[in-house]
Simulated scan of single mutants.
Amino acid sequence: MMIITDISLVEEAQDLSEMITQSELFENYTRAKLAVQHNRELQRKIKSFQELKDKYEDVQRFGKYHPDFRTITKEVREYKRELDTHPDIAAFKSAETALHEMLSEISLLLAGQVSDNIKVPTGNPFFDAQQSSCSGGCGSGGSCGCG
């Protein structure tokens, strides 16, 4: 009987996966990702930014004592801002966030069907606060009503 349940569960998971990949959010994400990947100028800028980040990581090893610390740090911030405000990057990040939120909601729903005590790391403080029955007591050494 357990084998039949496992097969059924796998089939339902595949159905859910198919529904997700056919959703408008997933299509928006895929479209935005392809727009970024196929924009040659943007890819050149991303490559340049990666090279600048490598320099930044080298500078960070010495911190403010490195002679180029301020210059490289400023360049990285400015270049990142330029990339983040590019319409294709902004659309991709927006679509990625929307898809992530949907997947987090699905994860929370699935976990809730099994047990209210299952914690799902969503990376989103809004969802994390909704599923937490603790008020910060456990990790902070205070009294806790968990579990």
Rank of each mutant, 00 (worst) to 15 (best):
A91S: 11
T122I: 05
S8V: 07
T85G: 00
S8D: 14
A35H: 01
G112H: 10
I89P: 07
A95S: 12
E96N: 12
F62E: 11
G123M: 11
L25K: 15
N117E: 15
L16F: 09
N39L: 04
Q37L: 06
M2R: 09
E51I: 04
R70W: 05
S23E: 08
E57L: 12
L16I: 09
V59F: 02
E57M: 11
T71S: 10
Q22S: 13
D68R: 06
R31Q: 15
L109G: 08
L83F: 04
E75G: 02
I3F: 14
E75K: 15
D116N: 10
V10D: 14
E51R: 14
K45Y: 09
F126Q: 13
S135F: 05
G141Y: 02
G137Y: 02
P67V: 11
I46W: 10
S94Q: 15
K33M: 11
V120P: 01
Y56I: 01
S132M: 01
A13P: 03
R40E: 15
Y79F: 14
T5Q: 14
M1P: 05
L99E: 01
E96P: 00
T97F: 04
E41G: 13
M19P: 00
S94T: 15
L34M: 12
Q43T: 04
I3R: 13
M2C: 04
Q14V: 08
G147T: 09
E41T: 11
D116R: 08
G63P: 06
D54T: 05
E11W: 04
G147H: 11
F49K: 01
H86C: 05
D54F: 00
L16N: 02
I118F: 04
G142R: 08
F69Q: 06
A98N: 12
I89C: 09
T71Y: 07
M102W: 01
G147W: 06
V10G: 02
N124M: 08
K53E: 15
K74M: 08
V76Q: 07
L25R: 15
C134M: 07
T122K: 00
E101Y: 05
L42C: 07
M19W: 07
I4S: 12
L52V: 01
P87T: 08
V36I: 06
M19R: 15
R44Y: 10
E24T: 05
L83C: 04
P125M: 04
L99W: 07
S104C: 14
C146V: 03
L83I: 07
Y79I: 00
N124R: 12
